[in-house]
Design a protein around this nucleic acid. Structure first.
Lengths: 202, 202
DNA sequence: GCAGAAACGGAACATGGTTCCGTATCGTCT
DNA sequence: AGACGATACGGAACCATGTTCCGTTTCTGC
């Protein structure tokens, strides 16, 4: 996975860390992201760090030099898709027929993302302190977008609830847990029900 | 798990194991359940087994003799409350004004239960294989009750959805995750939204 | 009171995240 | 090119946790 874009941001979890100066380091970082992505697909997001190191043909120390924590590795792997989601928000708002429609479509986007990543949703909400950073990153990036959509829909009087963007994101994320391993559970449908509940009853 | 009472029952997670024959064993089992309950309240359902052993003043082996697995201990601690929930279903159905009302009240009961147990909801859905038994036990006991309520409401034409009792339970359980540690997230409200979405639009 | 079954305690094992540090590699300076 | 310091690497070692094993202790029926 590409990653690296020029240094800039403040928040370490949000900022793509500056590219390593040394060529071997740069190469390893590439390799690691690719390996991690592959392992996540094959064994889920909670696959052992050692498996990722093995897949990348790299020592454990190397992983931890590049990504201080498992959560940072996960963030790095999915950063692009998250950012795509962030950018999709305003776009949908501008394009869609109504703000509420845009909100629904945006949430669908997010749910699709979550549901197609084995165990991501679970790890996102697991009280597990290891993944605090992951949780925080997702929320920091997505809540503002969600809030914008929610506000717009609210202003357009399409919505009948003072539900927080934060709560909505949490709820949606929660509903996606387990959807990837249980054919009897359809997260999209659940989220649909939840979001439908926001609509202004007319 | 206590020593094999002469074989009989099929589902080990559902059967309250027969009381141990030996007095010390009986005493220890009591002590363990109390200690576990206390530790779960203090440190959450995912507190280390060692903490529980320490609280009970007992060795690790003793815990594992009585409860083959952490999950079995958790089940034992909460069995009574689950069973109370199971019994409340038909009662509410008989008492409530309408089946849908009964369903709503029953779900409230369940949510209250989950939300007041630190980390129970999380551990319930965590893909974690360790807790498979817990997950299964909850579902085995509660899904039939939920199905009964759902059917009744459906028959009374109060509900406009072919949602499975299983899906509903999963959804509700999921929505409760993290509610105990995050003041910004109100699981009851989320569940309310979800359940409201079932109602026949009129 | 004895013998053997039943229970006990806790060391030891497996797994998984993370840290440490001696060694290897890179890039620059001369 | 050669040398040297900074950077990066590998993987053993460490810590936390669930679980297993087994030598020891405690009961209970006779």
């Amino acid at each position: 996975m590409p990653y690296r874009e020029p240094v800039n941001d403040r928040d370490p979890a949000t900022r793509p860390s500056a590219p390593p100066r040394r060529k071997d380091a740069r190469r390893n970082q590439e390799t690691l992201l690719d390996a991690a992505a592959a392992v996540f697909v094959a064994k889920g997001v909670d696959a052992p760090v050692r498996d990722i190191a093995a897949e990348a043909g790299v020592g454990l120390g190397t992983i931890y030099r590049h990504f201080p924590t498992r959560a940072d590795l996960v963030i790095a792997v999915y950063r692009h898709q998250i950012e795509a989601c962030v950018e999709a928000g305003p776009a949908l708002l501008a394009a869609g027929p109504t703000p509420y429609d845009a909100l629904v479509q945006w949430i669908d986007l997010f749910v699709d993302f979550l549901v197609t990543k084995h165990g991501l949703a679970a790890v996102l909400q697991s009280g597990n302190a290891d993944f605090e950073a992951l949780h925080t990153y997702f929320l920091d990036r997505l809540v503002p977008v969600c809030a914008e959509l929610l506000d717009a829909a609210s202003t357009a009087d399409e919505i009948d609830s003072d539900l927080t963007a934060y709560e909505l994101m949490r709820g949606v994320g929660n509903l996606c847990i387990g959807a990837d391993t249980d054919p009897r559970y359809d997260a999209r449908r659940m989220v649909g029900l939840l979001v439908a509940g926001l609509r202004h009853p007319r």
